[in-house]
Amino acid sequence: MARHAEISKEEIIKAGVAIENAGKRPNSGAIRVQLGNRGGFARIKEVWESYANERSSESLSNDNETDIELPTEIQENLDINVKRAIKNLKDITINSYKVAQRLAEKRVSSTIEEYKSKIESFEESEQQAGIALEACDDKIADLYDELEQLQTKNEKLLSDNSHFSGQIESAMKRITDLEKKENEFFELKEQYGKLLGKYEILASK
């Protein structure tokens, strides 16, 4: 298998930014085309995602709100829910990634085999072999697009799970408030019984 020429991080980032400036969504396939079909898909994807995450983190750090100190009981419930949510999100992420990875690897392998057969049939013509290789690269780029779409759906699922955890926390707070009011009601009822007993004693004299 041919070894891809090494491409610098700066070249990859520059190519991705150029695609963004053109109003398109950069992915490993599009960036590789922008680089003249140079570089490996895995390295391009790793460099670009690292750059995008750093850029996103810098943006978020400028928009952080002031922390609010919560009551101990609410903070403890929040910590429990956060830990549970993190575990669930981690499990979902790992499982989703494994499924997406197996699917992508299977399709990529199938595509490579398909176009390898086509290339072998056109070995006598270098131009025809080049066309087959280009078509293979496009197909692989499409598969990576599908993988990124699956990752986007997975992120939406994680967001929905986080929202559900927030609803649970809100419900637990309402239950706590109701229990407090119920205790107050029983205390008032007990005080009323004591006053009623004193009144009946005084009235009998």
Rank of each mutant, 00 (worst) to 15 (best):
L89I: 12
L89V: 11
D91W: 14
I92P: 00
T93R: 05
T93A: 10
I94N: 12
I94D: 13
I94H: 12
S96W: 05
K98T: 12
V99D: 08
A100N: 04
R102K: 15
L103Y: 02
L103G: 02
E105K: 03
R107L: 13
V108L: 01
V108Y: 00
V108R: 00
V108T: 03
S109F: 05
S109Q: 08
S109N: 11
S110M: 13
T111N: 04
I112W: 01
E114H: 12
Y115D: 02
K116E: 11
K116G: 14
K118H: 06
E120L: 12
E120I: 11
S121L: 15
E123W: 02
E124R: 06
S125F: 03
S125P: 05
Q127Y: 06
Q127E: 15
Q128S: 08
G130W: 00
E134A: 11
D137H: 07
D138K: 08
D138F: 04
I140V: 13
A141W: 01
D142L: 07
L143R: 00
Y144E: 09
D145Q: 07
D145I: 03
E146R: 03
E148I: 04
E148Q: 07
Q149R: 13
Q149D: 14
L150R: 03
K153R: 04
K153F: 03
K153I: 03
N154K: 08
E155C: 07
E155R: 11
K156D: 14
K156G: 10
L157D: 06
L158W: 02
L158F: 03
S159G: 07
S159C: 07
S159W: 03
D160H: 05
D160Q: 13
N161Y: 10
N161K: 13
S162C: 14
H163G: 07
S165Q: 08
S165W: 01
G166T: 08
G166A: 07
Q167G: 08
Q167A: 10
I168Q: 13
E169R: 09
S170F: 09
M172F: 12
R174D: 08
D177S: 15
K180F: 10
K181N: 13
E182H: 09
E182D: 11
